[in-house]
Write a protein that binds this DNA or RNA. Structure first.
Length: 733
DNA sequence: GCGCCCTTTTTTTTT
DNA sequence: AAAAGGGCGC
């Protein structure tokens, strides 16, 4: 470890200031991780006990990587520095609550609910109260949960959240509030904690137990919090509560990369840090070591249009490199082919795992996934579905959860669903009987169905065994195998492989609670995936945070997709989308391409409609991007879908066809005025009548389209667009 | 009460 | 394109 040689002056200052509060403003690619690693290593080398360091990061993987790199610096062997408490706020909260549950006056053996579990609990409350019954427009459980969680994380009233960003749901404000209360009560009664509870309950616990808080403050002489710009208000308060008596707190972050405001993160935390911790040393890391100058020129230009920001002057010594490209595929479908071709071309220069395709939302990669599959390019996707979200994994884990907490409703409902004759209603009844200790009902059920008796006996057997995760899991998987084939006839071998993987993960744990909670909070299945070599990476921008690749392709850069159409109405949301784009572009080391299809597929009309390049691209001055249009005779000719004519042939609507490069000429139409979307109602919901087709049979007309075409829903064939000539219309009666 | 079929509705990002 | 709700037969 040679601080003079390995670090620049600002980094060195951050590393050497080990006493007292420190705030590090770290621009993208400015060696933030290196700085934390060196600081860790220096602390340990200086004789600080690793057990007295607390390292809070955004993912467990980030913490592990830092510890392992610090270990390498200190030549401590492959495990790196051990004994440091580290991980996410949520994981730390779980570990602390579990460890000191007795002191805090809470029962042991609580269950941590993931999103799907929480939805089950909410659904239970909804059914019980009969709220929203029969109302098709009543918000989905996931939507309600999202609102409740948002209100909680932003520490606002539910009604305020609704009026700020979901005014169409205002009529449901009371119902949602009631559901929220029932949901909370249910969790308390049954010893269940959701993600938000972990943080808030830790705070309550520390406030209610000054001795415990004091103990933790003495124990952790050094705290480092990474990605501080993405902490929310409770997390900032937790940091303050945990801040060691020694005052050695370091926060690291970059306001320009704050992308979690939707769940309550606030950059105010960074701003307020120096006030909250008097005597704070503020260090700015401004030299970028990741990207070439042409990429930085683009990212600086993106940020230049930001409304509110803290001036930073990112610079690099890597002057040379290709100018980022703006690709203009004909449509989002040809975009997939173009991206695949580009990946293939890049793979001659870079290994596949050095290439990433990034997008705003998980669904945007579907077409590309198909295309990559066709062309045989292996890929790994991050963001979207998680390993532990898979139904078979949840099924198996439910048995283990019931070993620790018999009041775990979501687990019971999964497990009971396997017993023939037991559906949601009966399952609820049984659950309530178990809660009430009503052995009569259980006896009757057992007498009636043998499977139920077997299940109860099986659970009792499990509960009687020592709580070793791997051993218990083996029993469960063995018992579950026949159910697996029955429930998933198409793909149970693949799922079995997933369960084998789960067993491997379980083998690394000796504690059942930690195993179960980690799957929910940390998703170790994901780590395993991350190590795959020679796979192109597909990732949401959010999941790409903190990572970098030699080549980055960013797709669907058109209004309503990036920025997301949900973000168009409120300026703060739009600003967050801009930072998101900034994060995405700063992931690239050498090559960066942005794809803005000229038309996109629209589910609502079933066709393609012209798309405007993202507002963030239209705002750019000429220069930082080099535009390339897809050529009619080019590599992807013939791949665009029927009905998606090349834009020249398409009607001259508000597309870019007039100006050669965004921003080069006079400004195109202002944002928020897309040519479609708010158009005349096309009557998507109501039937316009019925008709008959020679092949598809009778169908319902859902919409009248231009060119004498109808959109018809055929019961056996799904929705189709058909010329009126081929249809026999029925009289509307 | 359960399970199947049909219809309607909605689709951001994550711990 | 998938999920959730309602209707209906068993």
């Amino acid at each position: 470890m040679d601080l003079e040689r390995d670090l620049n002056p600002a980094q060195r200052q951050a590393v050497l200031t080990t006493e007292g509060p420190v705030l590090v403003i770290a621009g993208a690619g400015s060696g933030k991780t290196r700085t934390i690693v060196y600081r860790l290593a220096r602390l340990v080398a200086g004789g600080v006990d690793p057990a007295s360091i607390l390292l809070l990061t955004f993912t467990r993987k980030a913490a592990q990587e830092m510890l392992s790199r610090a270990g390498l610096l200190l030549a401590m062997g492959p495990d790196g520095v051990s004994g440091v408490s580290g991980g996410t706020f949520h994981a730390f909260a779980f570990a602390t609550l579990r460890r000191y549950h007795a002191a805090a006056g809470y029962p042991d053996g609580f269950t941590v609910l993931d999103q799907a579990d929480s939805e089950d609990v909410l659904g239970q409350a909804k059914d019980k109260l009969g709220i929203g019954k029969g109302d098709r427009s009543f918000p989905r459980r996931s939507a309600i949960l999202g609102l409740l969680s948002k209100a909680r994380n932003k520490e606002m009233a539910v009604a305020d959240v609704l009026s700020r960003e979901a005014f169409h749901l205002l009529p449901y404000a009371d119902a949602i509030g009631q559901l929220g209360e029932a949901y909370t009560a249910f969790k308390t009664d049954h010893n269940l904690l959701d993600y938000d509870d972990l943080l808030f309950r830790l705070e309550q616990t520390l406030l209610g137990n000054p001795d415990l808080a004091d103990y933790l403050r003495v124990r952790h002489r050094y705290i480092m919090v990474d990605e501080y710009q993405d902490t929310n208000r409770v997390q900032a308060r937790l940091t303050r509560l945990l801040a060691p008596a020694s005052g050695n707190v370091m926060a690291v972050g970059d306001d320009a990369q704050s992308i979690y405001a939707f769940r309550g993160a606030t950059v105010d935390n960074i701003l307020d840090f120096p006030d909250l911790y008097p005597g704070t040393t503020v260090v700015k890391l401004e030299q970028n070591y990741r990207s070439t100058q042409p990429i930085l020129t683009l990212t600086n230009a993106i940020l230049a249009n930001a409304g509110r920001k803290f001036e930073k002057h990112l610079f690099t010594t890597r002057e040379d490199g290709p100018v980022p490209e703006l690709m203009r595929p004909f449509s989002d479908l040809t975009q997939a082919a173009m991206v695949a071709a580009k990946v293939r071309e890049l793979s001659r220069t870079y290994p596949l795992h050095e290439i990433a395709v990034l997008f705003r939302a998980g669904y945007q990669s579907y077409a590309l996934e198909v295309e990559l599959g066709k062309t045989g390019i292996p890929f790994q996707k991050f963001g979207g579905l998680k390993f532990s979200d898979a139904a078979h994994v949840k099924d198996v884990l439910s048995y283990l959860r019931l070993v620790r907490n018999t009041a775990d409703f979501p687990a019971w409902s999964r497990v009971l669903a396997f017993v023939p004759g037991i559906g949601p209603k009966t399952a609820t009844k049984i659950f309530e009987a178990i809660q009430a200790g009503d052995r009569g009902v259980l006896g009757k059920m057992a007498a009636r169905t043998a499977e139920f008796k077997t299940l109860i006996e099986f659970l009792d057997t499990l509960r009687g065994l020592p709580p070793v995760p791997a051993a218990l899991l083996e029993r469960v998987v063995e018992a579950y195998a026949p159910l697996l084939a029955e429930k998933f006839p198409d793909d149970y071998p693949r799922r079995q492989a997933g369960l084998d993987q789960l067993q491997q993960i379980a083998a690394a744990y000796h504690d059942l609670d930690a195993f179960l909670a980690d799957l929910v909070i940390e998703n170790p299945g994901e780590d395993r995936k991350k190590t795959r070599e020679d796979h192109v990476v597909l990732s949401t921008v959010h999941s790409s945070k903190g990572l970098e690749w030699s080549a980055v392709l960013l797709i669907d850069l058109v209004d309503e997709r990036f920025p997301s159409r949900h973000a168009l109405s409120r300026p703060e949301d739009l600003e967050e989308e801009r930072r998101l784009l900034y994060v995405a572009c700063t992931r690239a080391r050498e090559y960066l391409a942005l794809f803005a299809p000229e038309t996109v597929y629209q589910r609502t009309t079933g066709g393609c409609s012209p798309a405007l390049p993202s507002i963030f691209l239209r705002e750019l001055p000429p220069g930082p991007l080099k535009e390339r249009r897809e050529r009619l005779g080019g590599s992807s000719s013939g791949t665009f879908a029927a009905g998606c004519a090349p834009p020249r042939a398409a009607a001259g609507s508000a597309s870019m066809s007039g100006s050669p490069r965004p921003g080069a000429g006079p400004r195109p139409a202002p944002a928020g005025a897309p040519g479609n979307g708010a158009g005349p109602a096309n009557g998507s919901a109501r039937a316009l009548g019925y008709c008959r087709h020679k092949i598809f049979g009778r169908g319902k007309i859902i919409a009248t389209l231009d060119g004498g075409k109808y959109r018809v829903n055929f019961p056996d064939f799904g929705p189709k667009v058909i010329l009126a000539d081929y249809l026999e219309l029925e009289d509307a009666s």
